[in-house]
């Protein structure tokens, strides 16, 4: 049996059984957050890793998904779960507009454009107090479930679907076109690839998946405000770190990265006094990764294996 081929199914199966083992609520919470970050990481990876369009503003899509869910509840009295399906068209339209403006920019200019977009949305959400409630945020007063099990299954399904969709996309014509655009946009254009169109597709897919994660976050956490869901450090930058640490343009990279980043954050935050400095540790980690494992843990796995093998023989 080809273990590598079946690994995703085995992992999915084991995860699905986990809540039945009487795992603690805290551990389940950490797992839910890990899986949510995997989803966001996979989404970013499609645009940044495969298509080469590095976004520093994925909080914009995350926050938009979260606010779609929150506002449906707050303004229309609907269940915030409607945020999941309804965030899809909302985020798509937003991504199309954003793509129209920013996808004509290349490389660092695109990155700066997206960075600005995230900040603009945060400030807008803070100041449109009549619509968003401003800094007071939105709170869901009656939670769907007290128990975390169902939240776990919902995010697990979302992650599994995301993984499947991205794998299918990357292995298809779209994937080849994305990578061609990343490697050389002029060459891609001269090979008959409509670079603007395919970059827009990558952006929309990436944005929609991130928005879904945002809508889930609203339902799960029960409270959002602009500083949380449109955060530059805690969302946009962490998204990039998840992928960088795990491995850019790999299938498993964002999942490995999410696991490491979330666990690390939990561990560091629990250390007295030093806990506040978790951003510092993230920064140091990123520097180490960029110098020693530029392709991330999944990408530089053969290199890592060699290092550990050497340690054994020495």
């Amino acid at each position: 049996m080809d273990l590598k081929k079946y690994a995703p199914f085995i992992i999915l199966g084991l995860l699905a059984l986990l809540p039945l083992t009487g795992i603690s609520t805290y551990m389940l919470h950490v797992l839910i957050i890990v899986i949510m970050w995997s989803v966001i990481g996979m989404a970013w990876n499609l645009l940044g890793g495969y298509c080469g369009q590095v976004s520093f503003g994925h909080a914009a899509f995350f926050g938009m998904g979260a606010y779609t869910a929150g506002l449906l509840y707050e303004k229309l009295g609907m269940s915030a779960w409607w945020g999941l399906p309804i965030s899809v068209p909302v985020v798509t339209v937003f991504a199309l507009v954003m793509g129209f403006i920013f996808l004509r920019l290349r490389g660092p200019f695109f990155a700066l454009g997206t960075l600005a977009m995230g900040v603009i949305l945060r400030i807008t959400a803070e100041n449109l107090t009549g619509f968003t409630g401003g800094d007071l945020g939105i709170m869901i007063r009656e939670r769907t479930w007290v128990d975390k099990t169902w939240y776990f299954y919902i995010i697990l399904i979302l992650a599994a679907v995301t993984y499947y969709v991205i794998k299918k996309v990357v292995e298809s014509k779209l994937g080849y076109y994305f990578v061609a655009i990343r490697e050389d946009q002029d060459a891609a254009e001269s090979l008959g690839i409509d670079t603007t169109l395919y970059k827009t597709i990558a952006l929309c897919l990436s944005a929609v998946i991130t928005g879904l994660a945002g809508a889930f976050y609203m339902n799960y956490m029960g409270y959002i405000d602009p500083k949380v869901v449109f955060a530059l450090h805690d969302i946009s930058v962490v998204t990039i770190m998840v992928v960088m640490v795990g491995g850019v343009a790999t299938f498993s990279g964002p999942i490995i990265g999410a696991l490491i980043m979330v666990l690390l954050a939990e561990v560091i935050r629990s250390i007295p006094k030093l806990g506040m400095a978790h951003h510092t540790f993230f920064g140091i980690l990123l520097i180490v990764i960029i110098i020693f494992l530029p392709n991330g843990i999944a990408g530089d796995w053969p290199k890592l294996k060699k290092i550990f093998a050497k340690g054994k023989t020495a």
Partner: peptide, 21 residues
């Protein structure tokens, strides 16, 4: 645009080669 022209049936190579590295 270049991609439309390629679709119509004109393909090119570059003097400074541009492989998808």
């Amino acid at each position: 645009k270049p991609h439309q022209i390629c679709k119509l049936g004109i393909a090119r190579t570059f003097q400074v080669v541009k492989p998808l590295q």
